[in-house]
Amino acid sequence: MKVKIELFATLREMVGNSLLEIENVENVREAVEALIEMFGARIKEILMEGDEKKESVKILVNGKDIRDLAGLETKLRNGDCISIFPPVAGG
C-alpha cells in the first residue's frame, strides 16, 4: 500500500521535497512516524508534542482535517494523500 505525503512551508524546506511517497503505513500516526524516521528530530519538533500532534499543525487526508476524522488514528487506504502544513504568516 502506498500513500502520498504533501508538505508545505517550513516542512517542505526542511525535507527538500514537496511530495513524498511512503509504503506500508496503516494510519496517519504511522505515516508521521515514518516521516520522523526519515528526517529526524527537527521534523518531530515541528509536528509532535509527546505522542500527540501539535495543535498548530494541520494534517489533512484527501483534503479533510484529521481533527474531523479520527485524528492520528485515521485509517489510510492505498493512494490516499496526506497534506501537512504549519501556520503560515508571511506577508
Partner: peptide, 17 residues
Amino acid sequence: IYDGENMSFHEVCIARN
C-alpha cells in the same frame, strides 16, 4: 493553497471549531 513550485491550487475544507 497556492503552490507556485508545482503550479497548482488546492482547496481544503476547514470546519468551524
